[in-house]
Amino acid sequence: MNPNARLAARFAALKTENRPALVSYVTAGDPDMATSQRILDGLPAAGVDVIELGMPFSDPMADGPAIQKAALRALKEGQTQAKTIEMVRTFREKDTTTPIVLMGYYNPIYRYGVERFLTDAVSAGVDGLIVVDLPPEHDDELCQPAAQHGIDFIRLATPTTDTKRLPKVLGNASGFVYYVSVAGVTGGSAPTPEKLERSVSQLREHTQLPIAVGFGIRTPEQAAIIGRFSDAVVVGSALVDCIENATTPDEAVNGVHNLARALAESVKECREVHEPQVS
């Protein structure tokens, strides 16, 4: 399947179902590659609609303690860019429809070689990229080459991105737009739903792309509230915490899948069940 098609198809299908997507984040290779593969492979069955797979980096400047530690655990167990791409390839043997977005920082990609990375990522079945430290000012580095390979480049919009800057941020965006709910690092606290809803509707005036909201969303309850006005809800640190707190690989796998299942159920019902109660 053309990689671009997988994200578009998934969001189109969800739109007809009138429900938001659940987007999950885990770091590749956390706590080790074998366990991480089991976690990854089971996410669609747990109800995850779009998978973000973190490429671990030694210096994750935009991440809070949970995802920092996840990256260090993975690196300590010998995770590499090549192994992360391999995990996607293995996943694709069983699942050809769930979109996978690789998320991380530029240096490991740069070091791997941009062309080589994109070629390998496409052949493994990667659909999109989120690279935190590549603002639109550096679109020639990876965003434009990715487009040529048919890989979506998902843009982050933040509370500091004003309406003057939005066109620049959205210019080469594809796949979906990731609205960062708070100025801060991952795993912090989320702002009030009212404020978020306003931000998302402002963002909608500037883009046709689906809008995902992430940073600080931990519980099924929060996910349901945010899923009412966004096209996707991203949960990362809370899932990663399940791995941190596990004492065995099985516990890590079950922990992530159980939370994902609870989040998915909540997200799936959020518009129908709660609609009458929204004033």
Partner: peptide, 12 residues
């Protein structure tokens, strides 16, 4: 050189 930072910092 360049400006390889998260979007949150770009406007600043």
């Amino acid at each position: 050189g360049g400006r390889f930072v998260a979007e949150t910092l770009m406007p600043l």
